[in-house]
């Protein structure tokens, strides 16, 4: 059995590997987050962290719970499917504290043309105006009420369409 006469150095190498392997497993267990691999090759808790971000746009349901009068007004007009925050901007803070946080009233001369300024790339059926010719810089709400924009008979007609 000469082959195993000097086997002790083999055991030493084996011991180094075993200790190294155990250290690797131990350190890895400490460093890899618990939820890693819960759903796949990533940290499972990341999903909940991303989902926990606060909301800025409250959603039209929250607006309509209180502002039923505006909802009624919108139903008679073409803007019925335009959500509140499409024009009024993010209002989650206003929903949380309606008393102290008030939406800013905006300039309709700036707001309306975002959608209604004439542009060749817009769908042909969409109502568009060249604002400079249409109203001479007058604010749109001089004639149109934004929640129900059609000009009814008897009201002032400032625009040509």
């Amino acid at each position: 059995m000469n082959a195993f006469k000097n086997a002790r150095h083999l055991f030493r190498v084996a011991a180094v590997f075993v200790v190294g392997g155990l250290a690797f497993v131990g350190v890895r267990a400490l460093l890899v987050p618990k939820s890693f691999g819960q759903y796949g090759h990533y940290r499972g808790n990341a999903i909940a962290e991303i989902a926990a971000r606060p909301v800025n746009y409250a959603g039209h349901q929250a607006c309509e719970d209180c502002h039923t009068d505006v909802l009624e007004k919108k139903k008679s007009g073409k803007h019925v499917h335009v959500n509140c925050e499409a024009c009024h901007g993010p209002q989650a803070k206003h929903v949380d504290d309606p008393g102290s946080v008030q939406p800013v009233k905006f300039d309709t001369a700036v707001l309306c043309v975002r959608c209604h300024e004439a542009n060749i790339a817009k769908p042909k059926g969409f109502p568009q105006v060249a604002s400079a010719d249409h109203s001479n810089g007058l604010a749109c709400d001089t004639c149109h009420q934004p929640h129900s924009p059609a000009i009814t008979a008897g009201e002032t007609t400032g625009g040509t369409k």
Binding site: A51, V55, Y57, H60, A86
Partner: peptide, 23 residues
């Protein structure tokens, strides 16, 4: 884009869909 993951998990739509005036 996270597809507004913080919104859709709460039953809301995304911010872009909420603000889109034409659907």
């Amino acid at each position: 884009c996270t597809l507004c993951y913080h919104r859709i998990t709460k039953g809301l739509t995304t911010a872009c869909c909420e603000a889109c005036p034409t659907g």
